[in-house]
Design a protein around this nucleic acid. Sequence first.
DNA 1: TGCCAGGCCAAAT
DNA 2: ATTTGGCATGGC
Length: 308
Amino acid sequence: MSGPSRSNPGVIQAPELNLAMTLNSGQAFHWTALDDGWTGCIGDTAVFLRQKGDRLEYRGVGVMELQHYLALDHDLEAIRASCDHPVVREASLGCRGLRIMRQPHWECLATFILSPMKQVAHIRQMSLALRERFGTPLSGTPIPAFPSASALAAATEEELRACGLGFRAKGLLGTARLVASGEFDPEAIENLSTEEARDALCSLPGIGRKVANCILLFAYGRLEVVPVDVWIGRILGSFRGRRKASPAELERYGERVLGPFAGYVQQWLFHRARTGLLDLPAKRPLKVKATARRSPPSCRRIPRSVTG
DNA sequence: TGCCAGGCCAAAT
DNA sequence: ATTTGGCATGGC
C-alpha cells in the first residue's frame, strides 16, 4: 500500500558502495535518477535510494532486504586483491563500489532474454515497455513492477513485439509459459551446481550460454562465472594476445586469468570499457594506410546512458 | 546512410 | 565439433 515516499526513511553506512555506478552498470535495467537519488523497485516493492558519501538513505524497503539486494556483504577489497593482472588492478580501482547485485530471479532471467544484440539503453526501453504494458503499478515510483511470468504468459507474441522486443518476443513468451506452468522453477536453480544451473537455464527458449551466465552472475551470486559478450571478448582477446579464440576458449581463459571472482572482475572491465576508460584494441586489424583517416572506433565512445 | 549492440538457433560444414 | 546466416530494433 504505502510507497517509498510514505514509509519511514532509513539510513545506513555503506562505505564501499557506488550506487550510481552499480545501478548503471548493465546488470539491472529499471532504476531511474530522481531528486538527487534513484527510484525503482526491488521485486514488487517500490524503493527510493539516495547516497551521500558513505550514507545510504532508503525508503520503502527493509534494511535486510536492501543489504541483500545490493550485496553489501561482498568483500570488495578481498575481491580486488584476488586478481593481480595490471589492467584489472587499474579497472578495479576505477570501479570502486561497483557491486554485483542479487536481483530477483525471474526479473533478471526475463530481462536478460531481452539482451541479445541490444545496447543497455535499449534493454532499459524494452524493460520499461513491458512494465508499463503488463506490470503492476506501484505507488511512489513511476516504474511499475516487472510483470510476473503468468502475466507475460497470457500475452501474445505480437503484443510482446509491440513492446519493441523483435525476435526476442518468442523466447520471452516461451520461457514465461514454462515458468508460469511450473515446468521450470527459477527458485530451484538456487540449489544446483553452477554447471547444472547453467544447463537448466540453457534449456529455456531464448537463453544461450552467455545469457545464462549473466543470470547466474546477477541473480544467483555465482561470482566465478564469465559472460563473454562483444566487450569482454575483445578485452580477453587482447589479454590473451593470440588471434582467433572461440567464445568457449575465451570464457575458460577468463575464468582462469580473472581469478576466483572472475564474474566481478569481468563486470569492472565491462564498465570501464563501456565508459571509454579502458584502452581497447580495434575491432578489426587496423589497415595501416596513413591516407585513410578514420573516426575513432565506436567502442571507445561514451554512451550517454552511462555518463548521464 | 551504414554500422553496431551484454546472442540465439538451426543448418551446413 | 565448429562455423555460418538469419533474425528485429534503435541510436549515432
